[in-house]
Amino acid sequence: MNAVDFILSGMLAAATPFLLAALGELVVERAGVLNLGVEGLMALGAVIAFIVVYHGGGHMLAFAAAGLASVLLSLVFALVALGFRANQVATGLAIGILGQGLSALFGKTYESLTVKGLPKLALPGLSDLPVIGGLFVQDVVVWLSLLLTLMIWAGFAFSKTGLVLRAVGENPKAAHAIGYPVIAVRVAAIAFGGLLAGFAGAYASVVYTPLWADGMIAGRGWIAIALVVFGTWLTGRIFLGACLFGAVSLMSLAAQATGVELPSQFLSSLPYLVTIIVLGIISANKRLLKLNGVASLGEPFER
């Protein structure tokens, strides 16, 4: 298997944790809330899912449990940041650290244990194509994530729910004045973000690399937050960004396979370097950020 095949066939799976978490954060930010606790929400989801699968609960139950745990933790964020109107940045950081702490605590006795992942499903016909065939052999979660991406895009573009969410994020005072429950909409968005972060963590620990190691999320939650800005709050661009990061994160493995002489530490740090560079480039274009950005992002709402 050459490097191109390797990256093409692995890219979507590598992108899935980024994609799920970033889509969740997109919904949260579109409602005008900045939740920086994604890393911790993912870590909590990851450990819960691992424990469930390890004790024979199966993948379905694992994802449900991981989603539920992260929703509960994200609701703590909602309570503090919206209920008590605490600073969203500080609250998000605290919740993130709490989630990572909990995952280390629960995962203590499972360190370095492994479980079985999920089988790959091939799309008949397409998977036999030369070169790009590998793209069409993926596990069920990847396929569902792609479907979800489409649904979220359509939701923002066509549905009333998406419209209300955008309205609340752009001008919460006006949304309140025409009778929308701003706080309730934001809490729902935060819970949805928590759910997807939990799924993202679960995918990382029981499907993508089915083993438990403390700190295994390894900054992917942060990259997901950066991806939302990278994608200028647009679903399609966030998907492309997630694929790019999925591909970059495979580079170090691909490089070893092809025998490129670069220090592995440098290759492992590539995703983070790319994040910084891309964010710098995107942020230089103030016009783009302002046009698609969320006007009330991070500001508490008071009636």
Binding site: L163, R166, E170, K173, A174
Partner: peptide, 20 residues
């Protein structure tokens, strides 16, 4: 009808109306 308008600038006219 408010003095300082309560419209959403990034939405279209009909989207603003569909909210109500």
């Amino acid at each position: 009808v408010f003095q300082h308008f309560s419209l959403f600038e990034t939405l279209t006219v009909v989207e603003n109306i569909a909210l109500v």
